[in-house]
């Protein structure tokens, strides 16, 4: 901790859409949002980082493939491996998979349609940096909006994710995109890096979101930073 508030960086790539909502979610949870730019060579001493949703670099090549080589990703990868909490939402999840911080990949939805709906999820793991404020097995509803959100990995990887308890969220009430084993979000082994396709940052106040279920991501990490 560098101050009274947890400083949480939100990276803006060219084509990021949900960076301001992510910063707002940090603020509503009681943290200090810090703008990070994709060309930044350092992380401005933040305590955690959110990679937001959107279409970084126009989704050219593959979703997240070009963002993964942005200058800001170098210190991010290093500090994430050192234990800094990192949350990848939607396009951010794709960037984390392209970076190999998380296993597997996100592919085009099996039905080829862009999905935009309020999605029920089950919280499968509450001991990550981003989910400690939820109850085990709790169901939450947050928006989901993607065209390439089908989570895939080979069977061995899927088996080890299940065995190690690294499936953090599962879709409930219908699989929206063909994700293997209904997986909506996963973590790395240490639990500091979490990625998911749905958007908790859009569900942080009743005026604009379907619920306030997403706020727990941000309060969880802030508590973790206080006790770290």
């Amino acid at each position: 901790m560098t101050g009274g508030l947890g400083r949480i960086g939100v990276v803006t790539f060219p084509g990021s859409l949900d960076d301001s909502d992510a910063r707002r979610a940090v603020r509503l949870a009681g943290g200090e949002p810090v703008e990070l730019w994709h060309r930044d060579a350092d992380l401005r001493q933040v305590d955690a980082v959110v990679l937001p949703g959107g279409f970084s670099y126009g989704d050219y090549l593959r979703c997240g493939a070009i963002a993964r080589f942005s200058p800001v990703m170098e210190p991010l990868l290093e500090q994430a491996r050192g234990g800094m909490p990192v949350l990848g939402i939607c396009n951010g999840f794709q960037v984390l998979c392209e970076s190999h911080l998380l296993p597997g990949a996100l592919t085009r939805n099996d039905h080829l349609h862009f999905v935009c709906r309020d999605q029920r999820l089950r919280v499968e793991r509450t001991d990550t940096a981003w989910t400690s404020d939820y109850g085990q097995g709790q169901e939450i509803t947050v928006p989901l909006k993607n065209g390439e959100g089908g989570y895939v990995a080979d069977e061995r990887t899927l088996d080890s994710l299940e065995a190690e308890g690294r499936v953090v969220f599962r879709y409930v009430g219908g699989n929206p995109n063909g994700s293997r084993r209904d997986i909506a979000g996963i973590s790395n082994e240490a639990g500091n890096v979490v990625g998911l396709m749905p958007h908790p940052e859009h569900a942080v106040e009743t005026l604009t979101g379907p619920t306030t279920d997403g706020l727990g991501f941000f309060t969880s990490v802030l508590k973790r930073l206080v006790t770290a």
């Binding site: 592919t107 085009r108 939805n109 099996d110 039905h111 080829l112 089908g150 895939v152 080979d154 063909g178």
Partner: peptide, 12 residues
């Protein structure tokens, strides 16, 4: 895409 990966675009 690897053979075991679903290719919905190809299918369409």
């Amino acid at each position: 895409l690897k053979p075991e990966i679903l290719d919905p675009q190809g299918q369409a």
